[in-house]
Amino acid sequence: MRKYIASVGVAFLVLTGCSTGGSSSETASKPRVPTLLKSVDLRLPLEDYLFSDAERMQLDEGRAALINKCLRRFEMRDDFKLPGMPPGPRSLMDRRYGLTDEAAARVYGYHLRDDPRGRPATSPPEAETAAEKKRLAVLQGADGAKSGGGRVLRVKGMPVPAGGCVGEADREIAGKDQPGPGELARGANFQTFDISKRDPRVTEVFKEWSECMEKAGHSYPDPLTAMSDSGFQGKSSTRAERKAAVADVDCKRQTNLIGVWFTVETSVQKELIRQKKSDFSSALKAKKSQLAKAAAASGDR
């Protein structure tokens, strides 16, 4: 996996903006575009403010420890667990710009390698007995029991906290916020994607990619549209899908689409973070505080 990272810096070209053919010093100040393809290990600046899968696991372990502590107070079983992240894209960057792993495209097409769509969904049994319903109300709060607010549920002579033991645990970890990234980082994650996708440097490389795909017999304006083709949503990949997926990755390689898009989005994010410096540093502080509280809760379980 790392070998693709190592290719950063092998071949540079200069991103041309809209300036008139300037002096060499002007040219040198333009962002340089590395040649990139496989995106799973790339890292955008905004990821500092979002939660990685490992950080989500840490958060959930802390939440589960606090939830169990609360359940013990109500003399209930303290075996509550949160199973963590589902299998899926391996990182924020894995499928952000569509497919970039040629070997996987060859085998799975646009499907995930551990695609579950052929499997039926399983749901746990609904709380049916009075004891199970009471446990659910303590766990999730009175609104889980559809009380509509007003009355405070009491169990074992103690009031059930607002939002139940989950609500209590989340307040301990995140105060008045919900655990996980705040609205600033969550919003920015979509905005910078959207802004970079419409950047002329990126739309230009989409055009080159599209021409390359056309030569291979596939007609799409951009890689995400290819990924969304309604013909590629079946239970497993088809031969036509795998052929398109392989051509997609190959055209990304030929046009350096990933190098261009990643460079543009990185600079959009850096600029946003610079503009809202104090908001982002508060977001980082909040994230670190949540993770520290979660780790402490897991520690004194």
Partner: peptide, 29 residues
């Protein structure tokens, strides 16, 4: 389980994850 909503079909593009019992508005863009 953490549940994730993706911008694009086939789990592509940016995504937003919601933990157990958490909720939120989806981003405008």
């Amino acid at each position: 389980c953490n549940a994730t909503v993706y911008f694009n079909s086939n789990y592509g593009g940016p995504s937003d994850t919601f933990g157990y019992m958490n909720s939120g508005n989806l981003v405008n863009t």
